[in-house]
Design a protein around this nucleic acid. Sequence first.
DNA 1: CAGTGGTCTAGACCACCCT
DNA 2: GGGTGGTCTAGACCACTGA
Lengths: 260, 260
Amino acid sequence: MPSDEDAQQASHKYLKVRDYLVQLTTDELGVGDPIPSERALTQRFGVSRMTIRHAIDSLVSEGLLEKIQGRGTFVSAPRMDFEVRLSTFGEQMHRLGLTASTTVLESGAVAAPAEVASVLGISPGSQVHHLRRQRHADGKPMAVEEAWIPVKLAPALFDDGPPASLYEALRLHGHDPRWGEETLAADSPTDEERHLLDMGGRGAVLRATRRTHADSGAVMFSRACFRGDRYQVWVPLAPPQTPVTPSGATATTTTSKEDS
Amino acid sequence: MPSDEDAQQASHKYLKVRDYLVQLTTDELGVGDPIPSERALTQRFGVSRMTIRHAIDSLVSEGLLEKIQGRGTFVSAPRMDFEVRLSTFGEQMHRLGLTASTTVLESGAVAAPAEVASVLGISPGSQVHHLRRQRHADGKPMAVEEAWIPVKLAPALFDDGPPASLYEALRLHGHDPRWGEETLAADSPTDEERHLLDMGGRGAVLRATRRTHADSGAVMFSRACFRGDRYQVWVPLAPPQTPVTPSGATATTTTSKEDS
DNA sequence: CAGTGGTCTAGACCACCCT
DNA sequence: GGGTGGTCTAGACCACTGA
């Protein structure tokens, strides 16, 4: 029940140890440095070794620490984050040090077009909130974007006018965006897009089609069209193959036979 | 040392339990079904509860099981894989049910251009293997691709002519590709690209710039140029925010204040 | 209430690494 | 050898769930 902010300090012993280790590794230790041995921590905290191991294991699984049998436990290099995250245009621009601004082109409820209905898994023609916006970065047109959200999911979503952040609005209406899928493709702009994006005669656009999911299912379908010369996407690529049942203990470099 | 194939059967008790649970969940149980309780497994295997928990926890961390306090442990829905994986053109086409073919345009060792040297972290002008290929899917031109690999890393890489698969060749020379970074952008094709890709007057291309890493560091730089109308990239998007210190035990829906 | 997972103890022996 | 992590035991009490 304690709704405090930071000092949740944990009644659990392993959380105390954990907090201590997080402090230690971020404040005093550098990458590759060893943390105190499990038995040493046992002494320091006056708890059993299993408790210490619980704390350490949780940090290992998060990638903060790395164990090497016979040697010790070490601060690991910050691991690559192979996940591309759901982010809004504003967040993306902020990360690039640019200022985002938006011009609303259209806003309201419409009958769902066939593709939209299909992607969202709703009946064609059922009502969807629709928002079409022009996106700017530091004042320069960057993208034209269009989004559809079933009215049923959040009837009052647009009651105060089109929300500045659709993701935030969805969150407030109980449909926290959890994950998404995006398809990227290059294309030539339509005449209208070329005009809205202030592009010359030639030039390409990057089309991003996104389906956003909340716990309740697909909640939004959106299409964005970015100026090809002002926008690019960085994608980290994880290692190939997913050892179907890797364990984490066994795994002896299963030299799979490949033919490709 | 036992280089057997399947029956590694594990001398460790927790691995026996683990194997049993994997079998059980894949063969007999469905998503959402509960597995036997920890105490029941304790009886069945004649081991202590901590051992059972170790086995279960390893499967929970892999996403196969899900624990709910007070209720039980359940088979979880196969979790989304939010990672895009390193894959070759051949693999990508195979996945789409297409047949890949390749025409080598250029092959040999050259002095590293400035950008290539910079990206690979080598001295400008040092020797790099260079391969330029035209890629087809079901006989139709799909992409033009160019790759550079430091000669120093694998001097004999091209000794038998340009390898059919650069990734496979790197693997054979001790530089197993582990991860990569790719940047995607839309652009207009050059005249040569338009010709090689058999494109009409208009049309856009998707440029993919990739740096591939092995354990030894960056091993390859490559640029591919795909026909925009024949190629698209699917990217799964993971949930926002990375709780800096999430624990996995605490976390009571930390209602973070956001302003965007 | 009975049953489940969550935390915790105070030992034990093994496998591995380094010197 | 001496130190480190890896596995394992046989209990214990707590917190939560559901009937």
